[in-house]
């Protein structure tokens, strides 16, 4: 790893001030960034560790019934806290990486990185979550802007993520066994006013909504209706040694049908 100075702010304001100066980068749980730095694929003069900021850790429920998860909350905590109140989200969190990754990895880090194969972006987009930062609220539809790209400005920190809780939801992941990331995964969420379907792992633009499936499922919530749809186009899908674009497109359809079937 290249050398850097590690800064440990205790508050968001301190962290924001540190990030505003020179070549600085925020560190969440470090389960992606630290391996990237060890491989010398990333370097910075100053690394601002968010792990000491108590205010962005933990969970609560707001007046609208939305669940609010601090940006620095670990996957293990989400898996534990929401097993009953939002089981699809808890199940997603409880299947990220492995237990040691889930102890350290955070929801804010995952969303800010927006890896095209990460799990959390699918939950945030399908649930129509609001990403709260130290400066503003960003709707999930505006937040994800392509592979490793989000609406976050330089130095902006995710402090909280607010999830409306759907009537029914599920996350179906077709795992890439070596990395334990999804090869393709689909999060479906059924709300009173319609269904949202978010797909991760498939598109080279990162997480996306499969609108044809959303319309069909809003009219008729059944796995059979998904079977009747054409798979999304293979164009723009990730194609690599693990699976070509057409295969991933097919998996989108299969995972969506399974998610609808398994939704609770």
């Amino acid at each position: 790893m290249y050398d850097f100075e590690l800064l440990k702010p205790a508050t968001i304001d301190e962290a924001a001030a540190m990030l505003a100066e020179g070549d600085a980068q925020a560190l969440g749980g470090g389960q992606t960034l630290i391996p990237t730095m060890k491989a010398r694929l990333a370097q910075m003069d100053r690394l601002v560790a968010l792990s000491g900021i108590d205010a962005i850790r933990g969970v609560c429920t707001d007046d609208d019934g939305r669940i609010c998860i601090g940006g620095g909350t670990s996957h293990a905590t989400v898996a534990r806290e929401y097993a009953k109140s939002y089981p699809a989200l808890a199940s997603l969190a409880g299947r990220i990486g492995d237990p040691a990754v889930r102890s350290r990895g955070t929801i804010g880090g995952s969303l800010a990185n927006n890896d095209p194969s990460a799990c959390y972006p699918a939950a945030a987009l399908a649930s129509n979550a609001t990403i709260v930062t130290n400066t503003r609220d960003i709707g999930a539809d505006d937040f994800f802007q392509g592979m490793f790209t989000t609406a976050l400005e330089e130095g902006e920190i995710i402090t909280e993520v607010r999830f409306p809780v759907p009537e029914k939801a599920a996350y179906e992941k077709f795992i890439q066994p070596a990395s334990r990331f999804p090869l393709v995964a689909v999060f479906v969420a059924k709300f009173a006013d319609g269904v949202r379907v978010a797909v991760t792992g498939a598109s080279s633009d990162g997480v996306f909504r499969w609108s044809e499936a959303e319309q069909a499922l809003s009219d008729d919530w059944s796995a059979d209706v998904v079977a009747g749809l054409a798979a999304p186009g293979a164009e723009g899908m990730i194609s690599d040694l693990h699976g070509d674009g057409a295969y991933r497109a097919h998996l989108v359809k299969v995972m969506t049908a399974r998610a609808v079937k398994g939704a609770v």
């Binding site: 590690l6 470090g30 630290i34 293990a76």
Partner: peptide
Amino acid sequence: HVDGAPVKACTVLAQE
């Protein structure tokens, strides 16, 4: 184990 939870010691900074 760090504060009771399993952690990959190669993926966390000592100063933290």
